[in-house]
Simulated scan of single mutants.
Amino acid sequence: MPHSLVLNLIPQSPIYPEFLTGRHLHALFLTLVSFVDKSLGDYLHSSNADKAFTLSPLQIQRQHKQHHHSLQFSHQKLIPADTPIWWRISLLDGTLFQKLAPLWLNLNPNHPWHLGSADLYITSIQGTPQSTQPWANACSYTQLYEQASDSDRTLNFNFATPVSFRQGGYDTVLPIKECVFNSLLSRWNKYSGIEISSIPIESIYPSAFDINTEVLSNYESKFIGCVGGISYRILGDIESTSIKQINALADFALYAGLGRKTTMGMGIVRRV
Rank of each mutant, 00 (worst) to 15 (best):
S4L: 09
V6N: 08
L9W: 10
P11Y: 05
I15Q: 02
H24K: 03
H26C: 04
L28N: 03
F29M: 10
S34W: 00
K38E: 15
G41W: 13
L44Y: 04
H45Y: 12
S47V: 06
A49P: 11
D50M: 15
S56R: 03
I60Q: 05
Q61L: 11
Q66V: 07
Q72N: 07
H75Q: 06
A81R: 08
A81C: 04
R88M: 13
R88D: 05
I89M: 02
S90G: 02
S90M: 00
L91M: 14
L92F: 06
K99Q: 13
H114S: 09
S124E: 13
Q126P: 00
T128L: 12
P129Q: 07
P134N: 11
S140V: 02
T142E: 15
A148G: 05
D150I: 10
D150T: 13
D152Y: 07
R153I: 13
R187P: 06
R187L: 15
G193L: 13
I199W: 14
E202H: 12
I204L: 14
D210E: 15
N212Y: 13
N212P: 00
E214T: 09
S217C: 04
N218S: 15
E220I: 00
I224W: 01
V227E: 02
S231R: 05
S231Q: 05
I234E: 03
A248W: 03
A253P: 02
K261H: 09
T263M: 03
V269R: 03
V272F: 11
